[in-house]
Amino acid sequence: MNWKSFAVGAAVGAVGGIVLSGAAKDHKTASPEKVLKSVKERFKEDGKIDGSWISMKPESFKQHTFETQVFKGGISRRVDGELEQFEFIADVNSGTILDVYPL
């Protein structure tokens, strides 16, 4: 093997690695901690938060023909002295809240 072939192979490998690295970064999932923080900030607008949780392991979620991976979590707060509890579902890829429902 000559040096010219080696250099071309190394350059192609380096460029391929950079391209694949960039593609992998584009497919990162949302941080469960950031999703929970976002939900808590929205709920704090209406009352003090008593507790919150989020599952760190994504789960499969299917509604009608829509299927994705989600984080599930919950939050409780007090409004006018009454305890309110909610669960939420957030998209793993974007962190977007897909649903919030009372318990």
Score class of each variant (00 low, 15 high):
24 A>F: 12
26 D>Q: 14
26 D>F: 06
26 D>E: 12
26 D>G: 11
27 H>S: 12
27 H>T: 13
30 A>Q: 03
33 E>S: 12
34 K>R: 10
35 V>T: 00
35 V>Y: 05
35 V>F: 07
35 V>I: 14
37 K>Q: 12
37 K>H: 10
37 K>P: 00
39 V>A: 10
40 K>G: 07
41 E>R: 10
43 F>E: 02
43 F>I: 02
43 F>P: 02
44 K>M: 13
45 E>F: 12
45 E>T: 11
47 G>N: 04
47 G>W: 01
47 G>S: 05
48 K>C: 04
48 K>F: 11
49 I>R: 02
50 D>L: 15
50 D>H: 06
51 G>E: 14
51 G>H: 05
52 S>T: 06
52 S>Q: 06
52 S>A: 15
52 S>W: 04
54 I>T: 01
55 S>C: 04
56 M>L: 11
58 P>G: 06
58 P>W: 03
58 P>N: 09
58 P>T: 06
59 E>P: 03
59 E>Q: 13
59 E>D: 13
61 F>A: 08
62 K>D: 08
62 K>E: 11
62 K>H: 09
65 T>P: 06
65 T>W: 12
67 E>Q: 13
67 E>G: 06
69 Q>R: 11
70 V>C: 03
72 K>W: 07
73 G>R: 00
74 G>N: 06
74 G>H: 06
75 I>L: 15
75 I>A: 02
76 S>V: 03
77 R>K: 15
78 R>E: 15
80 D>N: 14
80 D>W: 06
80 D>G: 05
83 L>V: 14
83 L>D: 12
84 E>Y: 13
84 E>L: 15
85 Q>A: 13
86 F>Y: 15
87 E>L: 05
88 F>N: 01
89 I>F: 14
90 A>R: 00
91 D>N: 15
91 D>K: 01
91 D>C: 02
93 N>E: 10
93 N>Y: 05
93 N>G: 08
94 S>A: 07
94 S>T: 15
95 G>D: 03
98 L>E: 04
98 L>K: 04
100 V>F: 10
101 Y>L: 09
101 Y>S: 10
102 P>M: 14
